[in-house]
Write a protein that binds this DNA or RNA. Sequence first.
DNA 1: TTGCCTCGAGATCA
DNA 2: CTCGAGGCAA
Length: 685
Amino acid sequence: MKTHHGSNKIKRNLLTCAFNCSFMTPEERIKILTQELQEHNYNYYVLDNPTISDYEFDMKLKELQALEEKYPQLADANSPTRRVGGDVTKNFPTIQHTYRMYSLVNSYSREELVEWIERVEKSVDENLEYVCELKFDGASISLKYINGQLAEGVTRGDGYQGDDITTNVRTIRSIPLKLRGDAPEEMYVRGEIILPLEGFQQINAEREELGLEPFMNPRNTASGSLKMQDSAEVAKRPLQAFMYAVQGKDLPFESQWEMLAFCRNAGFKVPDSAKLCKTQKEIFDFIEHWDKGRLNLPYEIDGIVIKVNPFYQQNELGYTAKAPRWAIAYKFKAEQAQTKLNEITYQVGRTGAVTPVANLEPVLLAGTTVKRASLHNADIIAQLDVRIGDTVMVEKGGEIIPKIVDVNLDLRPKDAEKVEFIKHCPECNTALVRHEGESAYYCPNEDGCPPQIKGRIEHFISRKAMDMDSIGAETIAQFYEAGLVNKISDLYDLRQEDLLPLERLGEKSVQNILEGIEASKQNPFHKVLYGLGIRYVGETVAKKLVRAFPNIHLLMQATEEELESVDAIGGRIANSVTEYFAKEEHREMIAKLEKEGLQFEAEFEENISEVLNGETFLFTGKLSEFTREEAKEMVEKNGGKIVSSVTKNLKNLVVGENAGSKLKKANELGTVKILTEKEFLALIK
DNA sequence: TTGCCTCGAGATCA
DNA sequence: CTCGAGGCAA
């Protein structure tokens, strides 16, 4: 690590010299120093190739600091002096991502990867090219640059919005505060913040000296560092940033490979391990190489990312609800550890499903201590034939959730008996039931079983539903035990005087809780609907229902048939919805919530026109007039629908450059109208 | 599922 | 100052 010490005396000399010798204005001097420091910083942290001594660097930095102090009006938010931090953030405001941050689909075997490649090759017919990159194990981030200046650093969050951690991001030396070369007006760079192993060990050595507990693993330490309030502390953590994607308008590249080069030229650290591959063999060679080679890397990776290279091919493939179809992660084989199964306990979820949980002798695995692992259901227990006292093999795959994969029969105690799944609810002793065709056992005591009641309320307050600040599972349990809350709507009857007597709740906490409850009334209808916890109504289904039934009364009156007519709503969901609303207590509760002022009516933008009513569209090839996102919006705003493949339901195929198999198939069908982009635009004019 | 950071509450000590 | 809840990230 570079140390930035220097003496004030020398600094003053340098200052005097700068003024005396060159007759520069402070403004000019600041500009020169800034540029020099930026350059040296880049050489040191991005290229790993310093061209001046640490001492000289520190002198220049001190000089710049002094000048900025003297002329604060000339100090830039992206000055190299900001690298050392100092800004303290109280809380990190939420920022919407301009471009959604998708996740990646994971694969764990050669077979799965081959399946993906074959799927890709089916939709895109010619000259496939892939970029293989290392999958860094850290925290994802999005950086916004305005006219080449770092403007925002945002965590991934839920992919739609994240936390503004700009001041902390500025302290990471391998992130340029100002881009090199020509920069577009606005662009977003995505990458991963990691803590190299050496830095991790160094931090732990320091912590040990200070008598502090060492950190468990680099990934959590990196992630935690980004959320520290004192950016000067963040500056002391030797974090690094590896960037792998750029988004924005009119960018000067047309493929992932060119994008990596652009990133590198713009001054980001882009490892040169990425490789352009044309064949399956090349991809698998790359994987194999790094599966072994990763042990020698100075940082941790947990897999390989494979991306279709040209953008027009990526666009052809498009996205699922969560991830691009044009990329996939290959995760290295998970680490395993052997440990003892001490006990099986049973948990009752909000739906009444009873889940067996293995309580394990704590064991160190992939940088964490594993003590518990879900056994999912009775079938899994039977299949593994795990018994109390068994020695089992635990694995921590890409899902993060530890899993029992095997039982070591040689070490089984002689008297170990088969596990009998419990017959009665561990919480309320009601006899459990098992629905036909389902592997889970349920406690049918919906209204009297504490974990089900608490679970429903926890679900309601959760982030994706009402997102009530400063209330968590423990607080709900407290409310329930105090007899204050038995159903969702009871939350809205809570008063300050009810809560203050409760343990651990001071005035401040109570105020936060009540404010959170009040603020929840502003949440849109689809969140409220999701929060009700109707079985099979997740976030996506809730949104779909709200679209089709824009207020709660329409939804409550809908028959199963009407529900099923909605796209993606099947019999199972329709049945669950009507059953929910058939219950008197549910209808009463909803009436109460409505009275309290929760949103039970959807707000949508009106469609611009209905000219595309009944029409279906599919876009293929490289589009030049608009993006796929824009196309989708245009179609929907004009009453049309987007479909995903060429079938007899497709009425219009809009073709861009390089249209391939879809165009061919449409021609074969003969029923599809083929349009150019211009013709499409003319349709909706 | 676990680890890390932050905050409020309550204990401890001056 | 220490503890535990809560939030977040993978």
